[in-house]
Nucleic acid binder design. Sequence first.
DNA 1: TCGTTAATAT
DNA 2: CATATTAACG
Length: 346
Amino acid sequence: MGEEVKMTECEINDGEDNINGDDERIAVWEMGLPTPDDLTPLSQLLIPPELASAFSICPEPHRTPLDVNRASQTTLSNIRGQLNVLSSNNFKSFNETTGQTHDPIVVDLDNKTGAVERDGPGSEARKLRRVDSEEADSRTENSAEDPSSEAARALKRPRLVWTPQLHKRFVDVVGHLGIKNAVPKTIMQLMNVEGLTRENVASHLQKYRLYLKRMQGLSSDGPSASDQLFASTPLPQSLPESSGGGGGNGNFGMPIPMPYHHTATAGGMMPMPVYGHMGMQMGNNNGHNNSSSGNHQHHQVSINGHQNGYSGNIAYGHMFQQRDWNGNHYGSYTHHPHQVAPNDNM
DNA sequence: TCGTTAATAT
DNA sequence: CATATTAACG
């Protein structure tokens, strides 16, 4: 069923530096926030792949700027509240290690299998879709008709792929909050990734915790080959979060990003798509190596409108598996359902 | 309602 | 088999 829809969208805001005053802090945050204009509309919103393919229609109205705006405001409000409550974690520069900043996360919507193919020039290669006997999804759009974007959202959401970037954000936020405050909702809010749900975060958090536990249990460190994603991220020093209300906690702060424009220097990171390979799985870390040897090209319609945003991206969909960046290949892909490989640059 | 944890799906 | 989603429970 779920065919693959890939989406990329973006929206993370970036923060920078620590500020002391709450007000100031907030102000900064606001600056960093995507703001309606920047937020940009996702290119496509997730739409049930099946529906899309069945009807060959492109997604709907997704979120209109208004929606985004609204969401943004909501987030902002929440964040404000949190900032006040959270006391202070001083936000600091974000990635000192990587030296990268957060990018807005982009959710890439791309359809692969079933999508809108109709136009496709030769896209005959339709992977065979299961006989559509009844696959046609009985449920059309009648039930709830809320043309609003919410409805669309409500419909089945494509499988979220935690790209390294997303995970990075996640880890950063968790580290920032401290174990105690790191709960799904808060994390989700701070990540400020559009399209990311509490459930998504909760699920990932679950895995993350298990990972940490494992790690901790097993002697020092040695990121097993497994946990590709986690292995690449620096473990937060789980410090017992202290701050409950007070003020500084012993936590180091992680920053949550702000307004910086990413310099698109020659680095080679652009927000684009590297769809090619790599979903996640890195044995060790990084380096971005995406050579473009990639073969698959999808158009990533990223509509990034952000000016300063950073972009990370969320990805849905399936993709072929990950190959190696360096030369290692993983052998496990028997039949991978789908994964989209986003671009990650951490 | 939210956060966890277990089960189920892909 | 790994990872993400859905269900169940406190």
